[in-house]
Simulated scan of single mutants.
Amino acid sequence: MNIYVGNLNYTLKEEDVAELFAAYGEVVSVKLVKDRETGRAKGFGFVEMADDEEGAAAIAKLDGADVQGRNIKVNEAKPRENTGGGGFNSRPRREGGFQRQGGGGFNRGGGGYDRDRGHGGGDRFNRNSDGGRPQRRERY
């Protein structure tokens, strides 16, 4: 069972957390999350326990417990959602570019900054319902 542990004192080491959970069963691994740039602890981490029943017992007993002056948060870790990576330039590219509402600028086909979600206009002209000559759309 994979367990999330939060609100940890920043001075705690992985060995300290392993010892805390070992009272409830076999600890397979402990991973405290650290800041990539500074290397300092972020105050949360994950504990993997060999048996689900032992993990559930640890969650029941340790959630809200005072550890070095802090009430820790302990619950079953949820699977991480795939957000497509992360970091700079991880968003999917969109067509249309940054433009004024209703077209103009470069790329006269219309479409604002996000055509997929309808925030930029689409076509620069609207057609009549009878399919006649396109008419200019009012600008905001």
Results as ranks from 00 to 15, higher is better:
7 N>M: 11
26 E>Y: 00
30 V>E: 12
35 D>I: 03
18 A>K: 12
10 Y>P: 04
20 L>D: 08
19 E>F: 03
36 R>M: 15
29 S>W: 07
29 S>T: 02
14 E>H: 05
19 E>N: 06
39 G>M: 09
13 K>G: 09
13 K>I: 07
17 V>K: 01
24 Y>L: 02
33 V>R: 08
29 S>M: 02
22 A>F: 00
33 V>W: 14
8 L>T: 04
11 T>E: 15
22 A>L: 03
11 T>V: 10
10 Y>I: 07
37 E>S: 09
29 S>I: 01
16 D>Q: 09
33 V>L: 15
23 A>F: 12
38 T>I: 03
30 V>N: 02
23 A>Q: 14
18 A>L: 13
26 E>H: 04
22 A>W: 00
39 G>W: 11
11 T>S: 15
37 E>Y: 10
7 N>E: 11
37 E>W: 10
22 A>G: 04
13 K>Y: 15
28 V>G: 02
14 E>M: 11
26 E>A: 07
14 E>V: 04
28 V>C: 06
25 G>P: 00
7 N>D: 12
27 V>F: 08
19 E>H: 05
11 T>K: 08
20 L>G: 00
25 G>D: 06
19 E>S: 07
30 V>S: 05
18 A>E: 15
32 L>H: 07
8 L>W: 04
24 Y>I: 00
24 Y>R: 02
24 Y>E: 10
30 V>W: 07
31 K>V: 10
20 L>R: 04
34 K>T: 11
15 E>H: 03
8 L>K: 00
28 V>W: 10
15 E>S: 06
9 N>P: 00
11 T>P: 00
7 N>V: 04
39 G>H: 09
18 A>I: 06
17 V>R: 00
19 E>A: 10
12 L>C: 10
21 F>S: 09
33 V>H: 10
12 L>N: 08
38 T>Y: 06
35 D>R: 01
11 T>N: 13
25 G>V: 02
8 L>R: 02
9 N>G: 05
15 E>Y: 03
32 L>R: 10
